[in-house]
Structures are given as structure tokens and as C-alpha cells.
């Protein structure tokens, strides 16, 4: 995506350099020039070490924030417990929604946490500093993805263990599939959060993106009522919302359905994650205003 303009810029700089060298009457070997340009190119190219350094930095920041960590880990099982006892007299309802809720909680929390984290990076000037340094934009996002991906794995394992072990969530023997889907969904939530943070100017706006952008998806996703019973317009809308496919995939996984339709759902969630990350990278501008 970014390759073409960079190559063009390189060529033009080579021209200027050569001219400048001729002017100055310098007689240095061209190999040195090539080496310099490979270095320059590397600064724009995705670089695993830069992404890893960023991931370590983000984890270090989170590690210090004990309250946030506690909320991330304990909120999903806590809310699930509420559902479990609110429907104490209607076990059939909890049997239907328990597992999908487990699949969706990590997504919601990762969305909120990452959108605020990225907004903070923008507002404290550290993002601008990064933009003046040799790090590719996608490496910043990849670093976030690695760090919050790891957090999402821990969060999901805790939530699923408590949900299945203590709260009688029925997974019909497909616990691993449910956990894997929850992690995949959490990655989507994270990528989506990174992307939308670009549209928030203040923390007040960012926190409201959760109810504004996720609640409608939750309501239309099939958790509360089957999607095919919606009015036609809402059904069409629900067809284009990623959360609908998370719900469908969880329902199919619990039914032991590993057909093409299940994998199509998984593919759509993964695709939406990649698209959100790329859109997120596009919102990071080296030059602003």
C-alpha cells in the first residue's frame, strides 16, 4: 500500500544526492549510497523488532495499572454471573445466551481499552514523536495488536474457565472452539477500537463510541431475537455488522457445525479485523493539519 510512493521518493532523492555529490566534487563509492537508501527504506517497511518493542512497551504500561487489569479480567465473569442468577428461574434462556455472551464480552472490553489507549497516545504527543522516528505506522498498530491480543487470550481463558466451571455455561463439549472464537472476536474489537479512536477528539467522545457503535451491533446480532425475524431493513443492516457473524459462529460452533458456513463466519470476522487494522494505519498521519 505504501510501497509505491516511497520508491518514487527514493529515486528522486538518489537524483538529488548524485547531483549534490557531483556539485561538491565528491568521489565516494555508489555502494555507500545504496546502503544509506536501504536504511531509509527499512524505516518505512514493517519491522518485527519495532512492533515487538511497542508490544513490550504497551504491556509494561498495562502492568502498572492494576485496577485496569483487575477490571479486564474480572468484569466478564462478574457480568456473566449476574445474567446467570437473573435467569435463575429460566435456565433455558441462560443456556441459550450464556455462551454467546462469553464470546462477546472480551470484544467489548478490548474495544473500549484500545480506543482509549490510542487516543491517549495521540493526545500526549507521544504519537507525534513516534511519527518523527524510524518506525512504520503498521508496526505501531501491530505492537498494540500483539500486546492486547495477549491480554485478550488471558481474559478469555479466565472468563471461559469461570463461566464453564462455576456458572454452568453450556458449551456442549465445544469449550475450546468457544474460547478461540472469543479471542478472535476480541482481536476484532481491538482493531475496531484502534480505528475509531481516530475519530474521537476527547475521552468523553471515545467512551461513548462503545454504546454508539457496539450496542446496536449487540442488539442486532441475534442475541436478543433471531435475526431472520427482524423487519427486512434491520435484517439487511444486521447482515453487514461484524458482531452478527460472531454470534452466528458461536451458535454454529456449539451445535458442532464445522461446515463451510461456520468457516465463512470465521473468515468474515478475521477479514473485518484486518480491514479495521489497515483503516487504523491509514488514520495515522505523519503530517497533520
Amino acid at each position: 500500500m505504501t510501497n509505491r510512493p516511497i520508491r518514487r521518493r527514493q529515486t528522486s532523492t538518489t537524483g538529488t544526492r548524485t547531483a549534490a555529490k557531483a556539485e561538491a566534487g565528491h568521489n565516494r563509492s555508489l555502494a555507500g549510497v545504496g546502503g544509506r537508501f536501504r536504511t531509509a527504506w527499512r524505516s518505512e517497511r514493517p519491522h518485527a523488532a519495532a512492533a515487538m518493542a511497542t508490544a513490550i512497551r504497551v504491556v509494561n504500561q498495562l502492568r502498572r495499572d492494576h485496577r485496569t487489569l483487575a477490571l479486564i479480567l474480572l468484569m466478564p465473569p462478574g457480568i456473566l454471573a449476574l445474567f446467570r442468577y437473573v435467569y435463575d428461574a429460566h435456565p433455558a434462556i441462560f443456556a441459550r445466551i450464556g455462551a454467546p455472551l462469553l464470546g462477546i464480552f472480551p470484544l467489548v472490553i478490548m474495544f473500549v481499552v484500545t480506543s482509549i489507549a490510542m487516543l491517549r497516545e495521540r493526545r500526549t504527543g507521544t504519537l507525534e514523536r513516534l511519527m518523527t522516528l524510524p518506525i512504520a505506522k503498521i508496526d505501531i498498530l501491530a505492537g498494540y495488536a500483539l500486546a492486547f491480543g495477549a491480554v485478550a487470550v488471558v481474559q478469555t481463558v479466565v472468563a471461559v474457565a469461570i463461566g464453564v466451571g462455576l456458572l454452568d455455561v453450556h458449551t456442549h463439549g465445544h469449550t475450546t472452539a468457544l474460547a478461540a472464537l472469543a479471542i478472535l472476536a476480541a482481536l476484532f474489537g481491538m482493531a475496531f477500537g484502534l480505528f475509531v479512536s481516530a475519530f474521537a477528539r476527547t475521552e468523553f467522545q471515545a467512551v461513548q463510541f462503545m454504546p454508539a457503535l457496539l450496542f446496536p451491533q449487540l442488539i442486532l446480532g441475534g442475541l436478543f431475537a433471531p435475526r431472520d425475524e427482524f423487519p427486512r431493513v434491520l435484517e439487511i443492516v444486521s447482515d453487514i455488522l461484524p458482531l452478527s457473524y460472531v454470534y452466528d459462529a458461536v451458535v454454529r460452533a456449539l451445535a458442532g457445525d464445522s461446515s463451510g458456513l461456520f468457516w465463512r463466519d470465521v473468515g468474515i470476522i478475521a477479514g473485518a479485523t484486518v480491514v479495521a487494522l489497515l483503516l487504523g494505519a491509514a488514520t495515522l498521519r505523519r503530517r497533520t493539519r
Partner: peptide, 8 residues
């Protein structure tokens, strides 16, 4: 100004 090689 802003050329990638300047970031070093």
C-alpha cells in the same frame, strides 16, 4: 522535510 531517511 519529512523524508524517511531524516527520521534517523
Amino acid at each position: 522535510a519529512g523524508a524517511p531517511e531524516l527520521r534517523h
